[in-house]
Design a protein around this nucleic acid. Structure first.
Lengths: 224, 224, 224, 224
DNA sequence: CATGAATGAGACTTCATTCAT
DNA sequence: CATGAATGAAGTCTCATTCAT
């Protein structure tokens, strides 16, 4: 693998001893997330992470048990942050399309502002079997559930039996995948604004190609 | 990583010496694809791959130069196969929605029938920078180009300026991501038929959630 | 290196020359000497040498038995060349100091004009025990014998019992070492002419530091 | 290479765990020097060196970074020892010839008593380009500077412009080479005493062949 | 609590060398 | 005669993980 030279991880300026456990833990997670995101799971050595926190390796093991445990903890933290962001954007009383719109907006904002959390959540090591994939699947299911619920509400609003909407589960997964992929694409085309990217996906998800090619599309609500 | 115990890779029945280069090469790629898919890039040792082919490690290096080179060769082969499958399904004279439909069908058939090729193409090691990501990006672009072209044609058929469709590039990437994600989901829900899965995605992609919740949807053309 | 798959359509461009054994052998030695000199014994792979001659590896083994045998053959050839050069310069009827002078001149000319032979004769692999050291020791002894003889003659010319000169053997070895070392030094200070370098050593060897610091020194005979 | 069967490197009597870093480092250097000297750089495996110290391989890498780094460290240590020996023998107030004499004596004593350090300093791997050659060149330059200085002093003592002595640099290198070569020769003729060997070189270096064949020579100062 | 020291296992890679065609 | 194919052995190096202080 010809990774670019890893940017150096600088330890905290002074060796501070006896930091409360919770604080240390948070610090370690921050550093770990950064290192994992930069170098990838395999290339990130526990040594590098420990050094970055200004701590020794055995401490990492004392806190997280294993490299795997450390990564899982990173994922858990990132997942919490993602949902905080989405929850904040959600308004359960808004119409379903608006809910989806603000959800997508929150999602892409998260990706843009916390790329390392994003990377840890959906990156390389989650793509294989094992605990990481399990955790990632859990996250996708959680999102899918939100989407499925949205679809149900929307159908009900149309006076339609929600069960008729069809399999919401795979649909939701498709949406999640589309979002992930678009986010990845965004990394290499970062001149697009967050709104723009979110709108692309919104159009795709809500109206589909059919409407798009007929000149239609979804229009975001006026701000305010 | 707590991967499950790796399934043993059985060597060919008899140790055959002096197999012509082209044949060996093909054999090695087949085995390598399998091993990479099963264990992941890092956990797959070159030794295991060599053994699986009934050869010794130095031969692998003589043929592919490095583990990386071997993986790239696997990707190339899988890419070729995927496009063969899609090309076979394509009918440039059909209406765009049908073209998309048969393309999706071909894609999911590929995923179902050649899961290892699929895994090599989009799996774990393609998710980080480096040559694998480059190769995977190339593939995604190739697919996206097909999709974008389709959208253009569809718009033209509606008498619309194709450029009005909007950014086809991100849309195409969104579609690709949706397909990938659905394929991944399918692995764990394999009771769904290929047609079913393809139809889910087709509905999503062509009509969007809006139509779906209004009870609409896309109908596949009658067979024959 | 991932060698490109050999195209089965195009046969090797050049027809195999049916070269007589002696010629091939010479060619191989030339290439081998160059490769050994450039990369050193260990880093020089038999493959590289074979390739350089346009031959396959098994041929190298057919001709020289082993890598070691090949190197020894290179040394032998270089030794022959060195002595040819020295013999040509020698005039057994000249006074001893002139004999030494022309010998040194021939030696440094050899080093300058055939640096690869020089490198093979006195380079890295001769510095350890084993057959190379044996061969190199043989060469040094041969040279030392010449020098010792010279000293004997010189002493006799002074009417002195030659045995009184003392141990000529170690002296001769010291001279050889000085020559080697100066030759090595010369490589990095190549602006000095051959005559200049030879004269330095001649002065050192014939008059010693004592004379030098007293302003004395040895004067080369007028040309012609 | 048909090296003689390598003499086994015995680990320290008991497996001692948790030895302080500085101590281990010294131990490792001692063993490494021995192994390098006995088997040569290439044939000396890091494993063997580690085993000889009663440690495992990764420790060697933790301490010295690489095999190369280990060898360089050995050279550095040996160089320090050599200069300690020479410095001890030096008396800056003695006449130049005596200074040279005691310097040579110290040098040959070093070679006799610490042949492994000697081997590491001037042996096989220093004979090719690369970091070893650089380090060895540094050492030679250091010695040459001493010698050159001596010559300058001697010339001044004769009331001669020191610059008239001629190029002291190549002369000094010639001397160093002569000493090296004589030391190598000595290995196979070890019945000669240290004084004897040093005197041969002293005669050669101070009076040159010219004086020697005239029955002259340099006389060491009376002891005391 | 924290650490410096240590390890076992395994990775990729390279080479000299030899068959079987 | 010449070669393409193959190998066994070894090498350097890295890493997650754990004692003993």
């Amino acid at each position: 693998m010809s990774d670019a030279a890893p940017s150096p991880i600088t330890p905290p300026p002074a060796a501070r001893r006896r930091v409360p456990r919770a604080v240390r833990e948070r610090e370690m997670l921050e550093v770990a997330e950064r290192v994992f995101a930069e170098r990838g799971y395999h290339a990130a050595s526990v040594d590098a992470i420990a050094e970055g926190t200004g701590i020794t390796k055995p401490m990492v093991y004392a806190y997280f048990g294993s490299k795997e445990g450390l990564y899982i903890a990173c994922m858990e933290r990132a997942r919490r942050r993602l949902f905080e962001a989405i929850d904040e954007a959600a308004d359960a009383n808004a119409p379903p399309d608006e809910q989806l719109w603000f959800g997508l907006l929150a999602f892409f904002t998260f990706v843009a502002e916390q790329p390392e959390s994003w990377s840890v959540l959906f990156g390389e090591p989650t793509r294989r079997d094992g605990p990481f994939a399990v955790e990632a699947a859990r996250l996708r299911r959680q999102i899918a559930r939100l989407v499925a619920q949205l679809l149900g509400e929307a159908a009900a609003a149309e006076g339609l039996d929600p069960s008729r909407v069809g399999a919401t589960d795979p649909l939701a997964h498709a949406l999640v995948g589309a979002a992930e992929s678009l986010a990845d694409w965004w990394v290499d085309h970062s001149n697009a604004t967050t709104e723009r990217v979110a709108l692309w996906l919104m159009n795709f998800a809500w109206t589909g190609f059919g409407d798009l090619v007929r000149g239609g599309g979804w229009t975001p609500p006026p701000p305010g």
